Amino acid sequence: MGFKLLSKLLVYLTASIMAIASPLAFSVDSSGEYPTVSEIPVGEVRLYQIADGVWSHIATQSFDGAVYPSNGLIVRDGDELLLIDTAWGAKNTAALLAEIEKQIGLPVTRAVSTHFHDDRVGGVDVLRAAGVATYASPSTRRLAEVEGNEIPTHSLEGLSSSGDAVRFGPVELFYPGAAHSTDNLIVYVPSASVLYGGCAIYELSRTSAGNVADADLAEWPTSIERIQQHYPEAQFVIPGHGLPGGLDLLKHTTNVVKAHTNRSVVE
């Protein structure tokens, strides 16, 4: 069995187990497998329904001669939608809004960016022009300005110390501490036991640490421990890039980060 097929099978099995364990909360999309990078042309966006009122959005972007996937989250909030992270750029984010209108038909009224990198804030200006209120932590807003990236308009308070959590509509926002970046936030959907790890969490097929220019490698494993301790009931975990899975993604990420750190020390 090929690795790609095995990865998709694991996603399907995880979703099936969740649907059985929580039949009222989960209505997993039966329309197909989780979209992969090879299936999404740059400039297009796919939506994948995880649970009743919960979707991931998947886009792709060219970077350094390669094409990478990027995940975000959409959560229903009454007759409105909360968006977590842009679709990595203005063109993708405009396509995301169009796809949401086509498939869901509810307005996106608020959006949260989970850290300051372009795959999370690139497209904020498109959201703002569409009347979406954009939010991020003060740290993310400051770092985005320093980096020359787009800056969300509103500040999220109460997320300055490791372990801080605040309720934001249908989700809980959690600051686990520094990891992929010093400002990275985690998003949890309690009604569906869905954990969105953003770039602080890796997919299972990833074996290298990737972009760690703004990471705190020493603190990252401790931050992941905080996530595990705060959300032990999480059933569906979405990484910032690639295929979702279960809580095993947290341990896998820790292993990859520690291996990278150990290699760096040896070198």
Score class of each variant (00 low, 15 high):
Q229H: 05
P41Q: 10
D85H: 02
T60Y: 04
S22Y: 05
P244Q: 11
T261I: 13
L83M: 10
D214C: 04
V266C: 03
K91S: 13
H180S: 00
T93K: 00
A215I: 14
S30L: 11
L96C: 04
S161P: 10
M1F: 02
V11R: 07
D64H: 07
L195W: 00
L204D: 15
Y231D: 03
L81S: 04
S27I: 05
T134Q: 01
G246N: 08
V194N: 00
Y68S: 06
T60Q: 05
G123M: 02
K8A: 07
E145M: 08
E101Y: 08
C199A: 00
Q235W: 12
K258A: 12
G43T: 13
A144L: 09
D248W: 07
S27Y: 06
M1N: 03
L96M: 06
F236W: 07
A59W: 02
T207Q: 11
V112K: 02
A95E: 14
E147C: 13
L250K: 01
A87L: 02
G210A: 13
G105H: 13
L83N: 01
V187F: 01
P152Q: 03
K4V: 11
E147S: 08
N262Y: 09
V45Y: 02
S70I: 02
L73G: 08
G158S: 07
E33N: 12
D119W: 00
S30G: 08
I20W: 07
S31I: 05
T254Q: 08
L97Y: 04
V124T: 05
H180F: 00
I50C: 01
L83Y: 01
H260F: 15
V37E: 06
A165E: 12
L24A: 07
V121S: 04
E145K: 08
P239K: 01
S56H: 04
G131N: 11
A136N: 02
L159I: 12
L13S: 07
R263E: 06
E233R: 08
S161A: 14
D85G: 00
E33A: 10
L13E: 12
V256T: 10
G122Y: 14
A218L: 07
G89I: 03
T254A: 13
G242M: 02
R110I: 08
L13K: 10
A213C: 12
L97H: 04
H57T: 11
P35I: 14
P41G: 09
Y48I: 08
N92A: 14
N184V: 01
V67W: 06
A133L: 06
R226P: 04
G78Q: 12
N149S: 12
G122S: 06
T60W: 04
T207S: 09
S62C: 08
M18S: 05
S62A: 07
W220E: 00
P69I: 04
I227R: 01
Y135C: 02
H154L: 04
P152L: 04
Y202G: 10
E39H: 05
E39S: 08
N211G: 11
I58H: 05
F168H: 06
E145R: 11
I50Y: 07
G177M: 00
A95I: 09
Y202T: 05
Y68H: 04
F168T: 03
S162E: 13
F174N: 04
V108P: 14
Q235S: 05
T60E: 07
E172S: 12
I201G: 01
V266H: 08
P138F: 05
L73Y: 01
A136W: 03
T261F: 14
T222Y: 06
W88E: 00
A129D: 14
P221I: 11
D214I: 11
S30A: 11
S205R: 09
G242S: 03
S162Q: 15
S205I: 07
V257D: 00
N92Q: 14
E203Q: 08
T140H: 02
E80G: 13
V42G: 09
I186G: 02
E150S: 06
I238S: 01
L82E: 04
S181A: 12
D118S: 12
T14R: 05
Y188V: 13
A218E: 13
K102M: 14
L217A: 09
S22C: 11
E267P: 12
H241R: 00
V256N: 15
D29R: 10
S193Q: 10
P23V: 07
V132Q: 01
L10I: 06
L5Y: 08
G169W: 04
D85P: 00
G169E: 09
I104A: 11
M18R: 04
T114D: 00
V126T: 04
A178E: 10
D79G: 12
K102F: 03
T254K: 06
N71F: 00
T222V: 11
V194K: 02
M1W: 03
I40C: 11
I100V: 13
T222K: 11
L185I: 05
G53V: 09
E157A: 06
L5G: 06
D64G: 07
D79L: 14
G78E: 09
A66N: 05
L127W: 02
I201Q: 01
G122A: 06
L97I: 03
A130E: 07
L47I: 05
I40A: 12
C199F: 01
L217D: 04
G89C: 02
V121Q: 00
A94E: 13
R76L: 05
R46I: 07
A144Q: 03
S162Y: 13
